[in-house]
Amino acid sequence: MHSLIAVSLGSNRSKGDKDPTEWMPPAKNGPCTYAAGWVASQRRWKLTADRDEKTKLKQTAAGCPRTTVTYVPAR
C-alpha cells in the first residue's frame, strides 16, 4: 500500500488537508484506492475516525467490491 501517490498540482491543491468526507479523487477507481489507503493508514497507526468519516468510507467501500485493505501494524 502506498502512502503517497504522485498527482498533478491541481489535484494536490483541490485535496489540500481534506479528509474523505470533503474530497475524493475524480479518477474512475480513485475513490476505492484512496479510501483503502486512508483506512490502511488509520489502522496501521491506530487512528480514530469520526462518525461522518466512517459513514463516507463505508459508502465508498460499498462501491468497491474488489478492493481490499492491507496494512502492517506499526510497532
Rank of each mutant, 00 (worst) to 15 (best):
M1V: 00
M1D: 08
H2C: 01
H2L: 09
H2A: 11
S3Q: 10
S3D: 09
S3H: 11
A6W: 01
V7D: 06
S8A: 03
S8R: 04
S8P: 01
L9F: 01
G10C: 04
S11N: 08
N12E: 06
R13W: 00
R13K: 09
R13H: 07
S14E: 11
S14A: 13
S14Q: 14
K15E: 04
K15W: 00
G16M: 08
G16V: 02
G16P: 15
K18W: 02
K18S: 13
K18H: 06
K18L: 08
D19P: 14
D19Y: 05
D19C: 06
P20N: 04
P20D: 01
T21A: 12
E22P: 10
W23V: 03
M24Q: 15
M24H: 06
P25W: 00
P26T: 01
P26K: 15
A27L: 07
A27P: 04
N29W: 02
N29D: 15
P31E: 08
P31Y: 06
P31D: 05
P31F: 00
C32T: 12
T33P: 01
T33R: 08
Y34T: 03
Y34P: 13
G37T: 09
G37L: 06
W38T: 08
A40M: 02
A40T: 08
A40D: 12
A40P: 15
S41A: 09
S41I: 00
S41W: 04
Q42I: 00
Q42F: 00
Q42N: 15
R43C: 12
R43D: 09
R44C: 10
R44T: 12
R44E: 15
W45L: 13
K46R: 11
K46T: 04
K46P: 02
L47G: 07
L47Y: 13
L47P: 03
D50V: 00
D50R: 14
D50Y: 10
R51G: 05
D52G: 15
E53C: 13
E53P: 08
E53A: 02
K54Y: 03
K54P: 01
K54R: 14
K54V: 10
T55S: 12
T55C: 05
K56Q: 13
L57V: 01
Q59R: 10
T60N: 12
T60E: 05
A61S: 11
A61C: 03
A62F: 11
A62H: 04
G63L: 08
G63P: 09
C64S: 03
P65A: 03
P65K: 10
P65D: 07
R66D: 14
T67I: 01
T67D: 06
T67Q: 15
T67S: 10
T68Q: 12
T68W: 00
T68F: 02
V69T: 13
T70M: 06
Y71I: 00
Y71V: 04
V72Y: 09
V72S: 13
V72R: 15
V72L: 11
P73E: 11
A74L: 06
A74Y: 01
A74W: 02
A74Q: 10
A74G: 07
R75A: 10
